[in-house]
């Protein structure tokens, strides 16, 4: 599924990003480029810093040094960023969390519409119309009036995807989107993600789903101990990993 090479437009760039928690270096001088329309999967053992790296992209984590460039806007690690610029950056990056993080006190429709009204200043009518479109797209239009608590995990995650898409982001960030789900429910979510990829959405996905990484992603990055130890075409890395750590990680996975 190789659809981006040669286009050259960089959607996301991380330059020499470093993040420390106390003495522990979670991200050790990592650089990564994501082209428009590319789907990048980040895999690796727990504690490798994958989620932290992802969260640096939309500045949920502030790196200690390095640069983040998203859709042409660059943020330096040490520099102050105004709330306005921060909001704009985050509007361009939609994020889907492992624990869904839907708002339980609001209906599904309101979950998807709220940020549209408050951040994009759409009217309630416009927002709700767009929300229904998106809910329909993820197959959950009939759940609009329900509360998230009444929905299964897979449904909640799909609603979360709709909520993130509602702001018309340029890129979508997925932080282990299926890790909290039964394999069956996970499939619903993965198929939505596949569709997004086919439509050309730029995606960065931290995942343990090797099948997805192999089939859907254009570019694979393997992280361990805070660094990217290997990157390239998924098929090649799976077939013949060059780094020892990668080999160990992949064989442990395959042996299960």
């Amino acid at each position: 599924m190789d659809q981006s090479t040669g286009q050259g437009q960089i959607a996301i760039r991380l330059d020499s990003v470093v993040k420390r928690y106390g003495d522990h270096t979670v991200i050790d001088n990592v650089s990564l480029s994501v082209e428009e329309g590319q789907v990048v999967a980040i895999i690796g053992p727990s504690g490798a810093g994958k989620s932290t790296l992802l969260r640096c992209i939309n500045l949920l984590e502030r790196p200690d040094s390095g640069r983040i460039t998203l859709e042409g806007k660059t943020v330096d690690a040490g520099a102050e960023i105004s709330p306005k610029d921060l909001a704009e950056l985050r509007r361009n990056a939609g994020m889907v969390f492992q624990s869904f993080n839907l708002f339980p006190h609001l209906t599904v429709l309101r979950n998807v519409s709220l940020a549209q009204e408050r951040v994009l200043r759409r009217s309630r009518k416009e927002a709700d119309a767009r929300s229904m479109e998106l809910l329909d797209r993820v197959g959950l239009a009939d759940k609009a009036a329900q509360y998230p608590g009444r929905c299964s995990g897979g449904q909640q995650q799909r609603i979360a995807i709709a909520r993130a898409l509602a702001l018309d982001p340029k890129v979508m960030l997925f932080d282990e989107p299926t890790s909290s789900l039964d394999p069956e429910l996970g499939l619903e979510v993965l198929s939505v993600m596949r569709e997004l990829a086919v439509e050309g959405m730029t995606m960065v996905v931290v995942t343990h789903e090797m099948q997805f990484a192999k089939d859907v992603s254009d570019h694979l990055a393997v992280m361990a101990d805070g660094a990217i130890i290997e990157e390239g075409l998924p098929a090649e890395i799976f077939r013949a990993p060059t780094h020892d750590r990668t080999r160990r990680f992949l064989s442990a996975l395959l042996e299960r």
Binding site: E88, V119, A160
Partner: peptide, 16 residues
């Protein structure tokens, strides 16, 4: 209130 919800709101670009 779960911190994850606050994060999700921030990730959506919602103000404090």
């Amino acid at each position: 209130v779960p911190a994850g919800e606050v994060e999700a709101a921030h990730a959506l670009g919602m103000s404090q």
